[in-house]
Nucleic acid binder design. Structure first.
Length: 861
RNA sequence: GGGCAAUUAACUCAGCUGGGAGAGUGUUUCUUUGACGUGGAAAAAGUCGGGGGUUCGAGUCCCUCAUUGCCCACCA
């Protein structure tokens, strides 16, 4: 092994070997149990960011362990066409080129989009490889590839024929200048100073008025009701009556709806279903007429009476003037509010009603609610179960048409002659009803989530009846982000149930986000992001990966810190050097299995400690508590294996070389395997240097516990060593100064004597004198008392005896505090009668021990 | 506005079903003994956001207030 840890020398090489040997690929094998993860597909145009580095690594860690555990582990990678955001990006690019999608036309635009897909396809995948991800790259999928297109088509036809797809009305964002509907993402909200106009509407057959407040008086021409809150005492008696719509002189009803806030404005809202999304919903609930008064060009239309032909802005002025004249304008309040603007041309968005395609959700949602409620599908973090059920139980029909030019087609053809709608798995040549060839295809595209919803199916072969699908589906765990629980996770669940009759996955891990070091979300606009690739170049992949997990609760947000990556790199260095030590010791030795050698006390101790770690780590892995598993592992490696065992082994190597080498190799091999899912490269690199290794650590077997030993003596030895070191530090004895020590053993001399080497070596003791009784101790020294032995450190020349006395008194005082605490607890009748007996026994034992220790110490003062 | 989280040592965060407050960083002291100075040994440091309550016992459960963050919906 090289002297220094330099990941750049082996990471790429190792990954190529793995690829070459096809370790990542999984094939149907009935003799093995499958374990499947489908990767949430990143947007094809995206670059690797810290969020991927975290989320995808979670999956890699899980899948690598499962593979080692003997499962037929499959992790399917893929990318998403993300129609809307890709189209948005391309449009910006076209803008720079001085053109637009309208100028290009649909065909040319589609070509450009496909070029984009090709251009970007490679980038993020290459970066994922650099991260070390063990996906089955042969199965790389794309949400727009042939199979996905067929899957989408099949499902669409299935839903349509089942009567679950229908055409309905919906409010969309309309830009009157661009003459096109635009997506929510393209709407910029800006705070605009405006007014709140208070208008009075006369109540039918009465001289009373009701006052409404509005920011958009011009829409009153489309009013079909006014609404109040049903709980509002002021208006309760008016509900059901009609009011006269001023200027229009039409009767409209007063309705009651929870949507109305009593405290805002006057507590009365005019309802214009055709020009406001909320009003539209209210209109649906109350079956109101929809009157469109603003045309697609932003000009008041034929429903606007004398205002027809005016622009929205002019109409507003005119209407306000007319209201003033007719004394129906009560007051004008200054008010600024958020107004949506078209991002491209900055025109104010007009919400207008339009025809869209919907999926009827009620029947689909039902079984999807059930499987989560009964735990068939389990959110590893219970809080998200609520998020999910809340959404599903109040599910609205899913609008699946989008007014964009790229993405999956909506396979609906309409006969221009007889109006027949044709929805089939193939493109029709003629109308089945009137045999006309005059057919029009739907121009709108499908919502991106429509194909995403099928992802766990399509990646495994759907719509074909493939063996893979039979074998690997349902998958095991879905790892994804919390903001898409409803948009994506929910849709995958009902899709899986509807088309496969089976849930798509049984467990869901929702990971937190990696925030920037300033505690805010990493974002391009803030410029506070860190490029994972930079970190890899600087510290290596393993350091980046491990730093994202060590001590982090993966379900909660964490903060990125380069300092931590650096410290993790130091840990890698530690692993490297400890391994070098092991390799140096075992050089030329015949390494036996630990079951074949006579283990020393230290060997038994580290094996038992390792058993504990295997146990803890397995439990944490099974709960997907990866961050805690990582910190258990680093704690063991650094604090147990390096700081203690390797030091002990330096003593044993003389008298117990055989067992020492066997144990060093066994423990190192085992801990490397446990670490491998987190830090695949360094572990592989070292593993291949160790004796008796398999072809690769990544296909070696996951560790199992060896037998446990009684380690009380070693634990006490460690305690003794710590105490002596403390005493030395307390007395400012430099570490390099050797001292003498006297030791009195009360019984079990043979066993305790096995630890003398350890104590001497680790405490800088030149000579350990064994005594038979108390009286033989030198007079002025530091007396250290333990269960079974007393140690005296004759540091007379260095010790100020009054200070030593003070130290002892301080110790006694501490013990007094402990004793008092125990006694108080044990004298509390409530505690005695209600606390569990084991706890009480424990407390009693502690009390006895402390009392005995106190007596010993008092003798020394 | 609705929903959800968080508030623990100077900093970043752990603390599972209630039973004597933990880690890492930073600070201070000592240390170049052949794996490692990207190291080793030790020390100091907390009224667990405030206030109530349940309990023999609360960082942990309940209520309430405050602050911060996230998601969703965006208001006539």
């Amino acid at each position: 092994m090289e002297k220094n840890y330099d990941p750049s020398k082996f990471e790429a090489k190792i990954y190529d070997t793995w690829l070459g040997k096809k370790y990542f690929s999984a094939k149907v094998d009935q003799s093995k149990t499958p374990f499947t993860i489908i990767m949430p597909p990143p947007n094809i145009t995206s670059k690797l960011h810290m969020g991927h580095a975290f989320q995808e690594t979670i999956q890699d860690i899980i899948i690598r362990r499962k593979r080692m555990q003997g499962y037929n582990a499959l992790w399917v990678p893929g990318t998403d066409h993300a129609a809307l955001s890709t189209e948005y990006m391309l449009c910006k690019q076209l803008e720079k080129e001085g053109t637009s999608k309208e100028q290009l036309g649909r065909e040319k635009f589609k070509e450009r989009i496909e070029d984009w897909y090709k251009q970007y396809k490679g980038t993020i995948i290459e970066q994922f490889k650099r991260m070390g991800y063990s996906c089955d790259w042969d199965r790389l999928a794309f949400t727009m590839d042939d199979r996905n297109c067929r899957a989408v088509r099949k499902v669409f036809v299935h839903l349509y024929k089942k009567g679950l797809i229908y055409k309905g009305k919906r409010i969309v964002n309309w830009c009157p200048k661009c003459r096109s509907s635009i997506s929510d993402a393209e709407v910029e909200f800006k705070d605009v100073p405006s007014h709140l106009w208070h208008i009075r509407y006369q109540i039918e057959n009465s001289d009373n008025f009701i006052e409404v407040a509005t920011t958009r008086p011009e829409t009153m021409l489309g009013d079909t009701a006014v609404a109040v809150n049903p709980k509002d005492e002021r208006y309760k008696n008016l509900i059901g009556k009609n009011v006269v719509l001023p200027l229009v002189n039409k009767l409209i009803p007063i309705i009651a709806d929870d949507y109305v806030e009593m405290d805002f404005g006057t507590g009365v809202v005019k309802i214009t279903p055709a020009h406001d999304p909320n009003d539209f919903e209210v209109g649906l609930r109350h079956d109101l007429d929809i009157i469109k008064c603003i045309g697609d060009d932003g000009i008041m239309n034929e429903n606007s009476g004398k205002y027809q032909g005016l622009t929205r802005e002019k109409a507003r002025e005119q209407i306000v003037d007319d209201l003033k004249l007719s004394c129906n304008l009560v007051k004008i309040e200054d008010y600024s509010h958020n107004v949506g603007h078209c991002e491209r041309c900055k025109t104010i968005i007009e919400p207008i009603i339009s025809s869209q395609w919907f999926v009827r959700m009620n029947d689909l949602a039902k079984p999807a609610i059930e499987v989560v409620e009964n735990g068939t599908v389990k959110f590893m973090d219970e809080q998200y179960k609520k998020t999910y059920l809340n959404w599903m139980k109040n599910i609205k029909d899913w609008c699946i048409s989008r007014q964009i030019w790229s993405g999956h087609d909506i396979p609906i053809f309409t006969c221009n002659d007889c109006g027949e709608i044709i929805v089939e798995e193939y493109d029709p040549n003629e109308c089945p009803k009137c045999h006309s060839h005059n057919l029009t295809k739907e121009l709108d595209k499908l919502d991106t989530w429509f194909s995403s919803a099928l992802w766990p199916l399509s990646t495994l072969g759907f719509p074909d009846d493939s063996p893979d699908l039979k074998y690997f589906y349902p998958t095991n765990v879905m790892v994804t982000a919390r903001e898409i629980i409803n948009l994506w996770v929910a849709r995958m669940i009902f899709s899986g149930i509807e088309y496969m009759g089976k849930i798509p996955f049984s467990e869901i891990v929702i990971n937190g986000i990696v925030k920037a070091s300033d505690g805010r979300k990493m974002s391009k606009t803030l410029g506070n992001g860190t490029d994972p690739i930079d970190m890899i170049d600087k510290y290596g992949v393993d350091s980046l990966r491990f730093s994202l997990f060590d001590g982090v609760a993966i379900q909660s947000d964490s903060r990125f810190s380069e300092k931590k990556v650096e410290l993790t790199r130091n840990f890698m260095g530690k692993i490297w050097n400890a391994s070098r030590y092991v390799l140096m010791q075992i050089e030329g030795e015949d390494i036996k299995d630990i079951s074949q050698v006579d283990l020393s006390l230290a060997d038994k101790w580290i094996i038992t400690e390792l058993n504990k770690v295997i146990d803890m780590v397995d439990k944490k892995f099974d709960k997907y508590d990866l961050g805690m598993a990582a910190s258990d592992l680093s704690e063991f490696f650094w604090n147990k294996f390096c700081d203690w065992y390797i030091e002990f082994s330096k003593c044993d190597i003389q008298n117990h070389k055989e067992s020492s080498c066997a144990t060093l190799v066994y423990v190192l091999t085992t801990i490397l395997k446990l670490l491998h899912p987190f830090i695949p490269f360094i572990t592989e690199n070292i593993y291949l240097e160790l004796p008796n290794h398999d072809e690769s650590i990544m296909i070696s077997s996951w560790p199992k516990k060896y037998k446990d030993f009684d380690c009380e003596i070693m634990e006490q030895t460690i305690n003794i060593i710590r105490t002596i070191r403390n005493a030395r530090a307390d007395k400012k004895v430099p570490d390099n100064k050797k001292i003498q020590a006297e030791i009195l053993i009360k019984n079990n001399f043979d066993i305790y004597s096995q630890t003398f080497d350890y104590i001497s070596k680790l405490c800088g003791i030149s000579e350990l004198k064994i005594l038979n009784n108390n009286n033989q101790f030198q007079e002025n020294g530091i007396m250290l008392t333990f269960n079974n032995l007393v140690i005296n450190l004759p540091l007379i020349s260095m010790v100020d005896s009054s200070a030593e006395k003070e130290r002892l008194l301080k110790e006694i005082e501490k013990l007094n505090f402990e004793i008092e605490r125990s006694e108080k607890l044990l004298n509390n009748p409530g505690f005695i009668s209600k606390a569990p007996s084991s706890l009480i026994e424990n407390e009693k034992e502690k009390l006895q021990k402390n009392k005995a220790l106190k007596i010993d110490l008092e003798k020394l003062v």
